Simulated assay, not measured.
Amino acid sequence: MARIYIAEIRISDTMAEKIQSKHGVTPAEVREACQAPSRYTKAGWSDEPERGLRLIVHGESEAGRYLKIVLFPVDIADGIYRLGTALAATR
């Protein structure tokens, strides 16, 4: 199965504040876990009527912290996504 291309993750100031205050996750950790192909262990699509199409990514930050990250597609072909949320997860 081909890896999903993630070139850019757009994180608003509001979302950065939310993930840091609520989940203790930094935008840098999100990017580390998703954008380096060797870091994410799995990624898959979820399409729910109330939330729409989302990419669920599980990966590790450079410090070895395992994260679950939800991304909304902006431009799939160019690998551009918008952060929906990010939190620490267990394997």
Rank of each mutant, 00 (worst) to 15 (best):
L67T: 07
V57Q: 07
P27G: 09
Y66S: 00
G52N: 01
I11R: 09
L53W: 01
A33M: 04
C34T: 06
G79V: 01
I11M: 12
A43W: 01
V74R: 07
R82E: 07
P73V: 06
A43P: 05
I6N: 07
I76F: 05
S12Q: 01
V30A: 06
R91P: 00
A89E: 00
D75H: 03
A7N: 15
G64H: 07
R39L: 06
H58G: 00
E62A: 14
M15R: 14
Y66D: 00
Y5A: 14
L87P: 03
E62W: 10
I19R: 09
G79K: 02
D78Q: 04
R51W: 10
G52F: 00
A28G: 12
V70A: 11
P27F: 10
A36E: 05
Y5W: 11
V70K: 08
D47A: 04
S38I: 11
D47F: 07
A7Y: 06
Y40T: 08
V30G: 05
V57C: 07
G24F: 11
G52Y: 05
V74A: 12
V25A: 12
F72L: 09
A28D: 14
L83G: 05
T41I: 03
F72Q: 04
I76L: 04
P27Q: 11
D13P: 04
R10K: 14
L83S: 05
R54M: 09
G79C: 05
K22W: 11
I76W: 01
P37C: 11
D78I: 00
I56A: 02
S21Q: 13
G24I: 13
Y66N: 01
E8M: 10
I6V: 15
